[in-house]
Design a protein around this nucleic acid. Structure first.
Lengths: 154, 154
DNA sequence: CGAATTTATTTCAAGCTTAAAACTTCATGC
DNA sequence: GCATGAAGTTTTAAGCTTGAAATAAATTCG
């Protein structure tokens, strides 16, 4: 309320960029969701969870999962419960802390994820195919410098 | 399906960019959702619907709304129903076609949206504040050239 | 030790989201 | 007229998502 942060022109340019960013992201997500559904009979949130677990072979606690994925705790509970039912993931008791459990991919889960991850990379590459490696890298750098954008904090 | 579209290096760069894009978008959305909730007691989907209606003073049919917002028909039905209950929006019968209705902002809805839109632009400007107008414009151009990124079909 | 607080997770209610099925109305062709 | 199909919308079932409340276990500290 007190002060505008930038000129009005810059502000409009920021808004335009945000709407473009949002639109692009939604379109890509829609394609990925559709393909995950038709080709692997699964969903994007499930894929995201599997991807996070895949990056951590030792497993992750529920709160680690939800902070990595930037979603709420309760949300992850439901997704994990369904993945456990499907046998793609397992909850492993932690001896030193009976409140928490460690979530790990099962062998089935690993195999499924590997198949999906290969296809996923291929789809993304196709969707961004008319962006050169340099342009992609450049855009990545710009986004990385937004204070809120970096993936690193945690 | 037959061939990789790019080199493996470019493919990795595309994937990196996509993950960055997704992360940035989610962070911005999280901030906007939180602020809409605490300061205006509403949600992002509702705001999106109001914004679309605001751009079309003559009103929009349900299928126009859902195609503009890139969400399913059934989805819009629910959001509109709740907005109608709140008196922010009204369904107006179309004489020539009894299947469809025209959705319009009420005066209350317009007033509410105007307050929110001003704050929204301010928040976005703040979130992107360390991006110059030129950089924002440049990134916008790059995104606009993705075949899937513009407002066009596929 | 025992009370108070913090940490890890689940449950809950409400709303969002999708795809598919159902329903109603309109348009077309016979 | 009337069947047939298309168009516009709503309903449904299942899953995703959130914030808040509830539960339970660990930690802190008087």
């Amino acid at each position: 309320m007190s002060t505008a942060r930038t000129t009005d022109l810059t502000s409009k340019e920021h808004l335009r960029l945000w709407l473009r960013l949002l639109g692009t992201t939604r379109r890509v997500e829609a394609v990925l969701r559709e393909r995950l559904r038709t080709e692997f009979d699964t969903t994007l949130p499930r894929f995201d969870v599997l991807a996070a677990l895949s990056r951590h072979p030792g497993g992750l606690k529920m709160n680690e999962l939800s902070s990595q994925l930037k979603v709420s705790n309760g949300n992850v509970t439901g997704i994990i419960s369904r993945l456990v039912e499907d046998g793609w993931v397992e909850r492993i008791a932690i001896a030193e802390d009976r409140r928490a459990t460690r979530i790990k991919l099962t062998e089935t889960g690993k195999a499924q994820f590997n198949r999906m991850a290969a296809a996923h990379e291929c789809w993304v590459d196709e969707l961004f195919s008319n962006l050169s490696a340099d342009a992609a890298h450049h855009m990545n750098e710009l986004l990385a410098h937004l204070p809120l954008a970096s993936g690193e904090p945690q």
